[in-house]
């Protein structure tokens, strides 16, 4: 275990999240059980007040988690200076067995919390508070990944061993890697690229048809294949090195921090796509977020596609 100031900051905030998370969990549990919109009993009265507390806590956690996700990646990036063998955050993340799961959990939780806030927003806009019970039932469910994430993060920093030599991204994201990531390289990269553009086209079609299930599905698939295509196909063009495949080095200064922009676009686009579709499925409200989703997704596709195109124009060959 190493106590860099960054890690202490992350752990302190994790403790706070855990504390508030537990409070919110118990209150949500009560709310999910006893909420009755039509009652005017003292119980309902105190539940109403508690629901404000839960919403406030969730807003607080989400508002902090957004920048903290970036901060986490940044901390790992910084740690890669200390840990032998690591050249970017991916080496540090993968130095612990569950590091990658931790990162994925963080991302997943951002989606969940974001969706919860969308639902909360829709709920508060309606006089009848139609989704209050639903949203607290959902939070009871959502709090488990939150606790898992906090637990994983604490375990991650505790078991992070500075003197251990780790692999750099060059070996992790290659066909030679022994992990499941190498499976991605078995298949022809053009298949992944095809799926990436295919699901993007499908999400556009779904938007045009205003078909919510399709929007949800195509955005989820688009997210997954965007990341795979990024690792397998697009990243070498960003680095201009045929063997350098890494989703983390994008975040470094050498590449003008372009990763932060790309990931923000991708995550916002798919979040609005999936969250908006989910919300319209539940509430039958008109789709207000789909336009944002299409905008962000398109921007992402355009920027990431420009890398190989510009490379081809400049050098006349594909990597």
């Amino acid at each position: 275990m190493s106590l860099t100031p960054e890690i202490i900051a992350l752990l302190t905030l994790d403790t706070i999240f855990l504390f508030f998370g537990v409070i919110a969990f118990f209150l949500s549990f009560r709310l999910a059980l006893y909420w009755n919109n039509d009652a005017s009993t003292p119980l309902q009265y105190s539940l109403t007040k508690q629901s404000y507390l839960v919403a406030t806590i969730i807003k607080y956690i989400f508002m902090l988690k957004l920048p903290l996700f970036l901060f986490f990646i940044y901390t790992c990036d910084k740690l890669s200076n200390i840990i032998a063998g690591a050249m970017c955050a991916s080496g540090v993340v993968n130095s612990v067995d569950f590091g990658l799961y931790l990162t994925l959990f963080k991302l997943f939780n951002l989606y969940l919390f974001g969706f919860w806030l969308l639902l909360h927003y829709a709920d508060m806009r309606c006089e009848k508070l139609p989704y209050t019970r639903l949203k607290f039932i959902l939070f009871v469910a959502f709090s488990f990944p939150l606790f898992v994430e906090i637990g994983l993060e604490i375990a991650f920093f505790v078991s992070l061993n500075i003197s251990k030599i780790v692999s750099c991204c060059g070996t992790l994201f290659s066909a030679a890697s022994s992990s499941y990531i190498s499976l991605l390289f078995v298949v022809d990269e053009l298949l992944w690229v095809g799926l990436f553009y295919g699901f993007f086209a499908m999400s556009l079609l779904a938007f045009w048809l205003k078909h919510n299930v399709l929007i949800l599905f195509s955005n989820a698939m688009f997210l997954i294949f965007a990341i795979i295509a990024l690792i397998v196909f697009f990243s070498p063009y960003v680095y201009e090195l045929p063997t350098h495949r890494c989703p983390f080095c994008l975040l470094q200064k050498d590449y003008y921090y372009v990763g932060y922009l790309l990931y923000t676009l991708l995550f916002l686009g798919t979040f609005y796509g999936m969250g908006g579709a989910m919300l319209s499925l539940i509430s039958k409200e008109k789709m207000r977020f789909s336009k944002l989703s299409v905008g962000f997704n398109t921007l992402y596709v355009v920027i990431i596609s420009l890398y190989p195109i510009v490379y081809f124009i400049r050098n006349g060959v594909w990597l």
Binding site: S40, M124, E127
Partner: peptide, 20 residues
């Protein structure tokens, strides 16, 4: 909020409205 009964103001049942 009343313990029982209803109150409406300007056509809206204020006793049943959420606080906001």
């Amino acid at each position: 909020q009343p313990s029982s009964g209803t109150i409406s103001v300007e056509g809206k049942e204020i006793s049943k409205l959420p606080e906001s």
